[in-house]
Design a protein around this nucleic acid. Structure first.
Length: 277
DNA sequence: AGTTATACTCGGACGC
DNA sequence: TGCGTCCGAGTATAAC
């Protein structure tokens, strides 16, 4: 499941290989996978040169002059230069470049989306305007996190997954962040002390940074644009490790449902209550 | 207003 | 072999 580190990996790869190319055509294979805003047309993509590729939360933004192509991979989406034979039937759209190379958008579940937008209304049309703070923005400090938590209630994992508060965290990294700061996913956020908020902030930045350093976690469908696997799946402490021993205390990792999602945690290392120390 | 629950997208995996 | 049911990430919407 592509989350911030996986999307960042793809964006970096795209920036290296796709910037400067010109679009010759855009092929829609599955109608529901491609959304075109009212202020533009598919044909306006023709001849457009790619200025840069950027990321906002889990969105990939291919920046053109006066237009943007925005991609969200959701669960099973991929953006790749080539598609293996048994995946070809899941190709939903193709960007064709003037140098004859093609970038394929494939997606088994059809949850992923590509938005073709004018520059002015792209953030509303895609939903990017509703996103919260970027974890790697200078503005995202422990104090900032404390402000975001202020007045809110609910479970910690549910909070971490809210894209309109902090953008980019998904199921894998939410579990890893909770483990890293020793907090239970169902811990009520209104009980977090100042020190624990600082710990949580540190864990968010640390876990996402590690994911980026290791080029993402290839746990289900994620691959880079050349089909390369990430490495972060080899360094996960709890996600996908149900019944395996905790690396810190050897207790079997538990699995429950938190915030409606399959959730992994160590019942010994992650506390549901906070001691006053 | 903010939180929680449910529905929705879709096709693969699983069980009978 | 076939069919029905469940599952999942993220989001939208409804309900509380």
């Amino acid at each position: 499941m592509p989350e911030l580190p996986e999307v960042e990996t793809i964006v970096r790869e795209l920036n290296q290989s796709v910037t400067g190319k010109s679009i010759e055509g855009f092929q829609v294979i599955n109608e529901s996978s491609v959304l075109i805003s009212a202020d533009t047309k598919l044909s306006e993509l023709e001849g457009q040169r790619i200025m840069s590729v950027s990321r906002r939360g889990k969105f990939i933004c291919i920046n053109l002059k006066g237009m943007k192509v925005v991609v969200h991979l959701r669960m099973t989406g991929r953006l790749t230069w080539e598609v293996e034979r048994d995946r070809r039937r899941y190709v939903r759209a193709v960007i064709i470049f003037s140098d004859r190379t093609k970038l394929y958008f494939s997606d088994v579940r059809k949850f992923g989306k590509i938005w073709i937008t004018g520059k002015n209304d792209y953030d509303k049309f895609t939903g990017i305007s509703k996103l919260g703070v970027e974890p790697f923005d200078n503005g995202f400090s422990a104090e900032n996190l404390a402000d975001l938590l202020k007045g809110r209630k609910g479970g910690l994992k549910a909070f971490l997954l809210k894209q309109d508060i902090i953008a980019g965290i998904g199921n894998i990294y939410a579990d890893e962040i909770c483990f890293d700061c020793g907090l239970h996913p169902d811990l009520r956020i209104e009980k977090l002390s100042g020190k624990k908020v600082a710990d949580l902030h540190k864990s968010i930045v640390k876990c996402l940074s590690l994911g980026i350093q290791n080029c993402g976690a290839s746990v289900s469908d994620f691959v880079g644009i050349n089909g390369n696997l990430g490495k972060q799946q080899n360094y996960l402490f709890v996600y996908g490790r149900k019944d395996d021993g905790c690396y810190l205390c050897k207790t079997p990792i538990s699995k429950c449902v938190s915030a409606g999602r399959g959730t992994h945690y160590c019942s010994k290392c992650q506390k549901l209550s906070i001691s006053m120390t």
